[in-house]
Structures are given as C-alpha cells and as structure tokens.
Amino acid sequence: MIRILAVCVAAISLAACSGDPEFAEGGDLVTIHGAIGTVDRGATDPATEPLFRAYGIEFDSACVMPFASLADMEQHSVRVAYPAGGETRHFSGPLLRDVLEIADPQGSMLTVTALDGYQRDIEIDQILEHDVIVAIRMEGDALNIGGFGPAMVVWPRDDDDDLADIDDADWVWGVFSIEVR
C-alpha cells in the first residue's frame, strides 16, 4: 500500500512539473526593482527568498513579471548566432523596453542578475535604441532552468549592424532580477 501511495505521489509530482509553463501556476520569473514608478510587490524577505539574499539584492518594493505576463505581451523573434560564431537559434519574447515600460524606470542603468550570480550593467539607452528581447522561448519551447532560462537578454546582432560586434557578455541568461539605477 505504501509503495502504491509513493508511486501515485511521484506521478502527480511529475505531471505537475512537466506541464506547459504558460499555464502552470507559479511565481514570478523576473523581478524589476530599484528606481521604478510601478510596483506590485513588497520588500525582499530574507527568510523565504534566499537567492536574493545570496546575491545581496534587497529592495523595498518591486514590479514582478510572471511567465504568463511575459507571454501575453507582444512577442518578437530574433534569429541569431549564439554564442557568437555558434549555431543560429530562434529566440522569442517581448521587447525588453516594453517590459521595462511596465515598471516605469526612473534611472539610466540596469543591473541584470542571473541565477548563477552573473551580473551585467546595461545602459537603458541601449535597450531603447535596439530591439533587445527578454527571451522566454528558444526554438518555440520555453527556456528551462538548467538551460538559458527562465529568461534571457537577447540582442539582434545578426539583423542590427550597430550590434554586429556586441560581446556575448551582454547576453545574460538565467535572468531573474533587473535593478534600475
């Protein structure tokens, strides 16, 4: 009887984990904080948000973007070789400038943080001038944690001559936090 119960619990868990992320209930993919005008959540909680704590990210309020919100925005596609000189891949998601517009940024610089702690400073003017996307899909499939997910900053360097020489360092994958400064 215990074995049957264990198999049932495992099956239910696997079914929940393998569902389409667009319809899965869950938390926020990307948290935008810092100098923003639109907020919809409170301060970080060190007891329940250890990733923020581990990277020294603290805020009093933020604007959060769940997968469904990002998926409901106008989607843009970028076919680009990533990493530079590598395989051409098809990424899709909303424009980063449209995502930022929801949070009403009041600064000129972003610090984008990835799940592995990698951080990159990016000028907002760069985002406004180019069709940079917050990719949530690659080749039509949701970006997964363990891959490039949950979200990735993707630059259209193959289609935008001004970005032809952009360094891969500006491509942040595993994005979960964007601070506006």
Rank of each mutant, 00 (worst) to 15 (best):
G149V: 03
L96P: 03
I166Y: 09
G37D: 02
L128S: 11
A164T: 10
D20A: 09
G85D: 12
A16Y: 14
E123V: 09
S92P: 12
G85V: 15
W171R: 10
R157T: 07
A24P: 05
G27Q: 05
R181F: 11
A62S: 15
E22M: 05
M1F: 13
G34S: 00
A71H: 02
G19E: 15
H130C: 12
H130A: 13
A47D: 15
I133G: 03
D125G: 13
A54P: 13
P94L: 03
A114P: 02
Y118A: 08
R181G: 13
P50V: 12
D72V: 07
P66T: 05
V134K: 00
E74Q: 14
V78G: 05
F23P: 05
Q106A: 10
M109V: 09
D60S: 14
V153I: 15
F52T: 03
V154F: 09
S108M: 06
R3G: 12
A71F: 08
G86V: 12
S69D: 09
I178M: 01
G140P: 12
R97N: 00
R181N: 11
A84Q: 14
C8T: 13
D28V: 14
T113F: 05
G107A: 02
P83N: 08
G140M: 10
I127M: 05
Q106D: 06
S177M: 06
E22N: 08
E123F: 08
V132F: 04
P105Y: 00
Q126H: 11
I2E: 09
H90W: 02
H90P: 04
E179F: 05
V172E: 02
G19Q: 15
R53T: 13
D121Y: 11
R120A: 14
R120F: 06
L128K: 12
L5F: 14
T113S: 11
A35M: 02
S61P: 07
A142R: 05
P66F: 02
D121R: 13
V132W: 02
H33R: 01
V180P: 01
P150R: 00
G149L: 00
I122Q: 03
I122S: 01
D165C: 10
